[in-house]
């Protein structure tokens, strides 16, 4: 994916092929191609974003305790509530902690496996590639259900572990979930890094080999820098994924009482909307989307500066 993004600048459509003024020639072709997607994009992407922002400016009012609820314009009241909401910021802190540990571990493992596959030291590459990729076909909900059973003290094949430490206790459950996410996504990230390793022309290594550089040296000094764009992009997608964590904690609520209804930001959104308090839930959504955007953007910027 990264390569795709990074080569985009070069991959601009051929400007010379179609001269200005020739657009007339295409007739209805351009609207025919663009409008179907464009319409759905406006309806189900842009409109909801706008609507969430508008909704978050409202507030629920009741006449008396049992009176009907009405939504009235309240300005930034909901945002004030969001910022004063302790559990919400705790949940943000929790997923950040999760991300700081889980993302480097997951991508580190993915990178090592990709480098090993690419090193020529491993036999049966095809088998390993397939074996590592299998978990990616398992959706988060089902992966969480499976691992939830595996962690349960009385069912687990890991009894020697689960009888000593309760992996579903408040102390461990976050890392138990980190393991589920890692299990699902390592193979996918490995494949992205591996495919960008395959794209490196072999001539690049030849000089290094002539200089007598060993496999580890080549990996460290040549391969890793060259696949850095892939790593940066997988990191950005992982950051987005981490902040949006929902399926795993939602499923784990039935395995562990340590997972509360505000355990992650998205769980907070969901439980607030089931109250229902839509304006507040919308404000949570907007703040979360903004936080996600700022964080992934900041990461991209920071790594770009590092390159120079």
């Amino acid at each position: 994916m990264t390569q795709i993004l990074s080569t985009d600048i070069e991959a601009k459509p051929d400007e010379t092929a179609a001269k200005p003024g020739r657009a007339v020639k295409y007739g209805w072709a351009v609207p025919f191609f663009v409008v179907p997607f464009g319409l759905l994009f406006v309806l189900f992407y842009l409109l909801p974003i706008g609507y969430a922002i508008v909704q978050s400016l409202y507030t629920v009012e009741r006449t008396g305790t049992f009176g009907p609820a009405r939504e009235v314009f309240g300005g930034l009241v909901q945002y004030q509530r969001v910022f004063e909401n302790g559990p919400f910021w705790e949940s943000i802190g929790r997923v950040l902690l999760f991300g700081v540990v889980q993302v480097p571990v997951m991508l580190g493992v993915a990178l090592i496996l990709a480098l090993l596959l690419d090193s020529g030291l491993v036999k049966g590459r095809r088998f390993f590639r397939l074996a590592f990729f299998v978990p990616y076909a398992v959706p988060g909900v089902i992966a969480a259900i499976m691992w939830g059973f595996l962690y349960s003290p009385n069912l687990s094949p890991l009894k020697s572990v689960t009888s000593v430490v309760d992996l579903l206790s408040a102390d461990f459950v976050l890392w138990a979930m980190a393991n589920v996410v890692t299990w699902v996504y390592v193979g996918y990230n490995m494949l992205i890094i591996y495919s960008s390793l395959l794209a490196i022309p072999t001539e690049v290594y030849e000089a290094a080999k002539l200089d007598g550089a060993g496999a580890i040296r080549v990996a460290w000094s040549i391969k890793i820098p060259l696949v850095m764009p892939a790593i940066v992009l997988t990191t950005v997608f992982s950051i987005i994924g981490t902040l949006q964590l929902l399926a795993e904690p939602q499923v784990f609520r039935s395995f562990s009482s340590a997972v509360t209804s505000t355990y992650t930001p998205n769980l907070t959104v969901y439980s607030t909307s089931s109250i229902p308090n839509f304006p507040l839930a919308a404000a949570f959504s907007v703040v979360l989307a903004l936080a996600t955007f700022v964080l992934s953007f900041a990461f991209l910027k920071a790594t770009q500066r590092g390159d120079r």
Binding site: I240, L246, T292, F293, F297
Partner: peptide
């Protein structure tokens, strides 16, 4: 860059 989960509630 807009996560799909952020859209679920407003879509609802």
């Amino acid at each position: 860059l807009v996560p799909a989960t952020a859209l679920a509630l407003p879509l609802f």
